[in-house]
């Protein structure tokens, strides 16, 4: 239960940061936190009480392995999702740097004012 609570808190913090923070880097950090929450949710849903890693060891009984291991499917999805999150973060940081170069600030409100 505490893990579901953690997921909820991370999602809330991420959404709060995305909406309320005005600094672009803070927004990117909030997106990363939202990412944490989603990834953790998938892993937690795939968790099985007492389950080990979904890796078959030599000599292990395959049938017992299939019954006892945690769910590998969410892990496979999260694995790529994390790396994609990194690529997206890089893209966002590049955009934020470009905006900072253009407007001299990372504050979205001041960017609005400068444009007008």
């Amino acid at each position: 239960m505490i893990l579901y609570a953690l997921v909820l808190v991370l999602l809330g913090l991420g959404i709060h940061g995305l909406l309320a923070k005005r600094n672009l880097l803070k927004k990117i950090i909030a997106l990363a936190i939202l990412d944490y929450g989603v990834n953790l949710l998938l892993i937690v849903v795939g968790y099985r009480a007492g389950g080990g890693a979904p890796i078959l060891l030599p000599g292990e009984d395959p049938a017992a392995f299939a019954r006892g291991s945690v769910d590998p499917l969410p892990q496979a999805l999260v694995l790529t999702s994390i790396v994609i999150g990194l690529g997206v973060t890089m893209l966002l940081v590049a955009m934020a740097l470009r905006l900072h170069q253009r407007y001299g600030t990372l504050d979205v409100d001041r960017m609005d004012r400068l444009r007008g």
Binding site: L86, G87, M90, V93, A94, L97, Q101, R102, G104, T105
Partner: peptide, 25 residues
């Protein structure tokens, strides 16, 4: 791919001076 992205960030603004008023803040 990731290293190319990082290299772009390292070289950011170093390769060519920005055309549209990027200096002096």
């Amino acid at each position: 791919g990731l290293f190319a992205g990082f290299a772009a960030l390292v070289a950011f603004g170093r390769e060519a001076p920005p055309a549209g008023g990027g200096e002096g803040r």
